[in-house]
Design a protein around this nucleic acid. Structure first.
Length: 199
DNA sequence: TTCAGGATGTACT
DNA sequence: GTACATCCTGAAC
C-alpha cells in the first residue's frame, strides 16, 4: 500500500509541516525500481522573515521561482557546485516557503541507493557507508537519484512523492527534537531559529 | 577521533 | 569576483 500525502498537508504552516514530515516516507519511482526512505531530519525555510531563505523578503529570481509555487511542489537546487538539495514547497502560491529534507533512513531499494551513491551494491558497502547512505541533504539526493530534472515537479502526481504509508511501513514517530539549522551562519539572527527537526 | 582543505558551477553583486 | 542550505579524503593527535 502506498498512501500519498494530500494537497492539504503541503498547504499547512511551514513549521507544522516540517515537524509533521518526520517519520513520513520519501518515495522515488525510478525505471530501475522504487527507493523508499523514512524522513528523520528536516529544516524549515520561510521567505518572509528568514535571511537564510533564497527568497528572503520575496526575492524572486529564475532560481527561486519554484519557491513561489503552490505547496506540494518539488524544489531542487545545486549547492557548492556539486551537490543537490531537495526541498518540499509549502503554503499557498506566492508565499515563498519550503522544507529542506536533510536526512532519511532507507527502508527499500537499498541497492539502488548504494549504486547512486557509491556505484556498488549495498552488501558491498562498509558498515560506515551503510549508516551514512542518506544522512545529509547532498547524500540524500545522491541516494535517491534526485537532481534538477525533478525541480518544479509535483509531489502529488510525479515520480517523486511523500507518503505516510508504504507497503509494510507506517509513519511512526517518537520524540521530535527542535534545534538550530545547519550551515547558515551567514544568516545572522535567523541562524538561531529552532527550525530544524529530527526524530 | 577530530579537523582542515579542496572540489566545483551557478546565481547574483 | 564572491559566496554558497555540502561531502570526502587524508593527516594529525
Amino acid at each position: 500500500m502506498l498512501h500519498r500525502l494530500t494537497r492539504d498537508f503541503y498547504l499547512q504552516d511551514t513549521l507544522t509541516a516540517a515537524r509533521a514530515l518526520i517519520g513520513c516516507f520519501l518515495v522515488h519511482e525510478t525505471e530501475a525500481g522504487r527507493i523508499v526512505g523514512r524522513i528523520n531530519e528536516t529544516e524549515a525555510y520561510i521567505g518572509a522573515i528568514d535571511k537564510a531563505c533564497h527568497a528572503y523578503q520575496g526575492r524572486r529570481t529564475p532560481r527561486t521561482e519554484t519557491l513561489f509555487a503552490q505547496g506540494g511542489t518539488v524544489y531542487v537546487y545545486l549547492i557548492y557546485g556539486m551537490y543537490h538539495c531537495l526541498n518540499v514547497v509549502t503554503e499557498a502560491a506566492d508565499v515563498p516557503c519550503a522544507v529542506l529534507l536533510r536526512g532519511c533512513a532507507l527502508v527499500e531499494g537499498l541497492d539502488l541507493a548504494a549504486q547512486g551513491r557509491f556505484g556498488t551494491a549495498y552488501t558491498e558497502l562498509t558498515e560506515s557507508r551503510q549508516k551514512t547512505l542518506a544522512n545529509g541533504p547532498g547524500k540524500l539526493c545522491m541516494a535517491f537519484g534526485v537532481d534538477r530534472a525533478q525541480n518544479n515537479t509535483c509531489f502529488l502526481d510525479g515520480a517523486l512523492t511523500i507518503c505516510d504509508r508504504v507497503g509494510p511501513h507506517v509513519r511512526e514517530t517518537g520524540a521530535i527534537t527542535a534545534s538550530k539549522r545547519i550551515g547558515i551562519d551567514y544568516a545572522q539572527e535567523a541562524a538561531d531559529f529552532l527550525w530544524r527537526f529530527t526524530g
